[in-house]
Write a protein that binds this DNA or RNA. Structure first.
Lengths: 343, 343
DNA sequence: TTGAAAGCGCTAACAA
DNA sequence: TTGTTAGCGCTTTCAA
């Protein structure tokens, strides 16, 4: 069933049917009625692929994220989807799984499918292939938006978080609460969030005149397993820390896994400050302090930014639009931490 | 840049270029080389939309799920994406948010975009619009696969879980451990998982000759808020239960939220058996027993089933292919539960 | 208010 | 081994 069939059955031309369907141009009410009668009768649904080809515009955007199983990304995705739907856009989901190979192949898909834009949290901030592609996309009028991670020197729009401030303020609270031996499990230092959260930690410590033993800065990779190892090494030190700042949700979980498997109780034996809240722990009122973000909002803003810059090919040397959202510090229980400050 | 441009620049016809690109039909090696030289030089990427229209096949499947923020669905999605990618398929993500209106609009999109198939966890098992659409899709040769929830009387393929057995065995373990006052927070009884998990609970209780006070069966909706209320009403009873079987992950969380906000400790003051494990609680070794499923596998199987039945339009009256995956019971800690059985 | 016809970029049957 | 050409299903200009 094609538009031609509908035209024949109604006794009009395809042009008229097209005008009726898309509400573009004049169609006599009587004609319109007849057309839709036929359409309904035959349950005709116009072929969007043909339409896309004809008007040279797919109302579809690609979303390339590393790990949909991560609470952060699934919430970002949810925000993106919400705004996309409000604006009649569809989402091509592309999960890179932190694999450069997959990311590259997805960028090809984005290009081949002539998507209107792409929202991406790149696997690596230093990958040249990805950077080149994204720049080419922009050049060709596609809308490109980064989420959380950056592509240095690319001037691509993005939605980020105020990592430095949040980390600094958070760690400062630990210090105010009396902690002096504060360690961290950082993220990859080649990534914006990894770098910035570590910087915030350092600023807070130095600002308070606290010395940071080199062993207190362990290098995680934003995943559980590695964080588990880092926690292990921290707790094996001669002078183990009394508080740990973990740089993302999985890092927090890996760290907690080590601590609990060693019968340590958070908020009593040790304090943890995690970056990003963890839904399930909130429900059981777990004594974990966190730096929280509105992840849905990050997604919504990303999609809005994308929509805003559709077809802005010609605006050369435009200032980069970089939205930096604030974080919120949530202190939960952890009596020791509070009391220490007063004692 | 189109295939025509490449043809002109190379001095061959579009047919030859097409053959070279798609490795279909003969192309002299020398010609091939020249074609790709031009392609690479100009960074030409074939237009997949035009290709789709021409060959009448989008290698794209739709995934309609109610809530990507739910750990269960994000893991299913992950599994789907894995198999899709292995087979060169793309995924159009459509989050219905448990809204029938959105679901219907997504079904339109699936049809308009001429997707190869659709994997869906329908919002309601009784919705006629959705049922009709899915049947029409099948009739037209699209592959349709249900996940977790059913569409009764439709004979559509699907991947489900062995809910009854799992719930029955799980609750039986609670009984073996000495519990007699076991309540449940059920799911919607119009949905397969809701219905079946409740049935398993009833079977276990009746099988053990235990009476189920009507107030012990509270009716949740698979969401947190409602589960919170249910837990509240259960704990307010004259004879509150000593164990609760919660019928999905969010139900568990809502229940836990009520209990912990009332200073009750799981595994000491009360036992909980949840359907579906919760990643974060696993990490902190929380004393929650659960019925676990391999959620990634569910997604993978769903995608495999979809691929298998592509273009099977003509096989009439085929037996419905319904994959029922087993669950695993994971008992965690909960000393009281164990001891009771022996005392 | 409507229709004829060209075109979107690609594929594939057929002929050469 | 290659080219010609007729679609795929829709939009849109131009003329009527």
């Amino acid at each position: 069933m094609t538009i031609q069939d509908i035209a024949n059955l109604t006794g009009v031309s395809t042009a008229t049917v097209s005008r009726a369907i898309n509400k573009t141009g004049y169609v006599k009410e009587e004609t319109r009625r007849r057309i839709f009668e036929v359409i309904d009768k035959h349950k005709y649904v116009p072929n969007a692929v043909a339409r896309s080809l004809s008007i040279n515009d797919t109302s579809c955007v690609g979303v390339i994220i590393p790990d949909i199983e991560n609470e952060f990304f699934s919430k970002v995705m949810s925000g993106i989807a919400e705004v996309a739907e409000e604006n009649g856009y569809h989402i091509l989901f592309l999960g890179s799984n932190e694999s450069l190979k997959r990311e590259h192949s997805f960028l090809n898909i984005v290009e081949a499918q002539r998507l209107a834009g792409v929202i991406i949290t790149p696997v690596s901030e230093e990958d040249v292939f990805t950077k080149d592609r994204l720049l080419r996309f922009k050049q060709r009028g596609m809308s490109v938006v980064l989420v959380d991670r950056d592509v240095p020197g690319s001037n691509i729009d993005g939605v980020f978080s105020d990592n430095v401030t949040a980390a600094r303020d958070g760690v400062s609270k630990l210090i105010e609460a009396g902690h002096t031996k504060i360690a961290t499990i950082s993220g990859p230092e080649t990534s914006k969030p990894g770098k910035e959260r570590l910087l915030g930690y350092i600023q807070a410590m130095e600002g308070a005149g606290l010395y940071i033993p080199p062993q207190y800065v362990t290098h995680g990779d934003f995943r559980k397993q590695r964080a588990f190892e880092c926690a292990k090494s921290l707790l094996s030190l001669n002078e183990p820390p009394t508080a740990i700042f973990t740089s993302n949700n999985l890092t927090t979980l890996g760290c907690l896994e080590y601590l609990t498997s060693n019968k340590m109780k958070i908020g009593r034996d040790i304090s943890i400050l995690g970056f990003d809240d963890i839904e399930a722990l909130k429900a059981i009122n777990y004594k974990l302090s966190v730096i929280d973000r509105d992840m849905n909002q990050i997604g919504r803003e990303a999609m809005r930014l994308l929509l805003k810059n559709l077809n802005k090919r010609h605006v050369k040397n435009r200032e980069r639009e970089s939205i930096v959202l604030p974080c919120t510090l949530i202190l939960r229980g952890a009596k020791k931490m509070r009391l220490k400050g007063r004692s």
